[in-house]
Amino acid sequence: TTYYDVLGVKPNATQEELKKAYRKLALKYHPDKNPNEGEKFKQISQAYEVLSDAKKRELYDKGGE
């Protein structure tokens, strides 16, 4: 599973699309609303952290993490 899959976006997604997808999923899986989905929330946050940063995203796209 790639970070793009976690957020449900395509690899060519814009920053705005990433932000929108992250917010939607973060609300859905937030531990306050969904106590059993803490791990999913962490995955979503990690994916967004990497993909929202241009340098980290470039490194990730080249095969790094």
Results as ranks from 00 to 15, higher is better:
residue 29 Y to P: 01
residue 56 K to W: 07
residue 60 Y to E: 03
residue 51 L to F: 01
residue 13 A to D: 03
residue 40 K to Q: 07
residue 29 Y to N: 03
residue 27 L to Y: 12
residue 23 R to W: 15
residue 39 E to H: 10
residue 23 R to Y: 13
residue 61 D to S: 02
residue 51 L to N: 00
residue 51 L to I: 03
residue 35 P to N: 07
residue 47 A to Y: 03
residue 4 Y to V: 01
residue 18 L to T: 01
residue 16 E to V: 08
residue 8 G to R: 06
residue 37 E to L: 09
residue 4 Y to W: 04
residue 36 N to M: 12
residue 15 Q to P: 12
residue 43 Q to A: 13
residue 50 V to M: 05
residue 10 K to V: 06
residue 9 V to K: 01
residue 62 K to W: 07
residue 22 Y to L: 03
residue 58 E to P: 04
residue 49 E to H: 09
residue 33 K to M: 14
residue 15 Q to N: 11
residue 24 K to V: 12
residue 42 K to P: 03
residue 11 P to R: 10
residue 27 L to F: 11
residue 39 E to N: 08
residue 25 L to K: 05
residue 48 Y to D: 01
residue 6 V to S: 03
residue 35 P to I: 06
residue 45 S to Y: 12
residue 11 P to E: 08
residue 47 A to D: 00
residue 14 T to Y: 01
residue 48 Y to S: 01
residue 41 F to A: 03
residue 28 K to T: 08
residue 23 R to H: 14
residue 63 G to F: 15
residue 48 Y to I: 04
residue 1 T to F: 14
residue 58 E to G: 06
residue 60 Y to I: 04
residue 53 D to P: 01
residue 5 D to H: 08
residue 53 D to H: 05
residue 30 H to T: 06
residue 15 Q to C: 11
residue 57 R to W: 02
residue 44 I to Y: 03
residue 26 A to Y: 15
residue 24 K to P: 02
residue 59 L to R: 08
residue 49 E to M: 10
residue 63 G to M: 15
residue 60 Y to R: 02
residue 39 E to L: 11
residue 13 A to Y: 04
residue 52 S to G: 10
residue 56 K to M: 12
residue 32 D to R: 10
residue 11 P to K: 11
residue 41 F to P: 01
residue 12 N to S: 10
residue 47 A to E: 01
residue 32 D to K: 12
residue 46 Q to Y: 10
residue 39 E to F: 09
residue 18 L to D: 00
residue 42 K to C: 11
residue 49 E to F: 11
residue 28 K to I: 13
residue 6 V to F: 06
residue 65 E to G: 13
residue 43 Q to I: 12
residue 17 E to C: 05
residue 26 A to H: 08
residue 23 R to T: 13
residue 49 E to C: 14
residue 41 F to E: 01
residue 34 N to F: 08
residue 8 G to L: 05
residue 16 E to Q: 10
residue 17 E to A: 07
residue 46 Q to I: 14
residue 33 K to N: 15
residue 45 S to F: 12
residue 47 A to G: 01
residue 25 L to C: 05
residue 21 A to Q: 05
residue 8 G to I: 02
residue 32 D to H: 10
residue 32 D to P: 13
residue 1 T to A: 13
residue 35 P to R: 08
residue 4 Y to H: 02
residue 18 L to K: 00
residue 6 V to I: 15
residue 45 S to T: 15
residue 54 A to N: 08
residue 12 N to D: 13
residue 56 K to R: 13
residue 2 T to N: 13
residue 12 N to G: 08
residue 1 T to K: 13
residue 45 S to E: 15
residue 61 D to Q: 03
residue 38 G to P: 11
residue 47 A to W: 01
residue 25 L to W: 04
residue 34 N to L: 06
residue 24 K to R: 14
residue 46 Q to E: 15
residue 17 E to L: 05
residue 40 K to N: 07
residue 14 T to D: 05
residue 30 H to G: 13
residue 1 T to W: 14
residue 45 S to Q: 15
residue 51 L to R: 00
residue 4 Y to C: 01
residue 39 E to T: 07
residue 27 L to V: 10
residue 39 E to D: 12
residue 1 T to M: 14
residue 31 P to L: 06
residue 49 E to A: 13
residue 35 P to Q: 07
residue 32 D to Y: 07
residue 64 G to T: 14
residue 9 V to C: 08
residue 10 K to T: 12
residue 6 V to W: 10
residue 42 K to E: 08
residue 54 A to H: 09
residue 45 S to A: 12
residue 40 K to M: 13
residue 9 V to G: 00
residue 8 G to H: 06
residue 9 V to R: 01
residue 6 V to P: 00
residue 25 L to Q: 05
residue 63 G to I: 12
residue 12 N to Q: 08
residue 37 E to W: 12
residue 42 K to T: 08
residue 33 K to P: 04
residue 18 L to H: 00
residue 52 S to D: 02
residue 36 N to S: 11
residue 22 Y to S: 00
residue 54 A to C: 10
residue 58 E to T: 06
residue 56 K to H: 07
residue 27 L to Q: 13
residue 45 S to D: 06
residue 16 E to L: 10
residue 49 E to L: 11
residue 48 Y to H: 02
residue 11 P to F: 12
residue 30 H to R: 10
residue 18 L to Y: 01
residue 42 K to N: 07
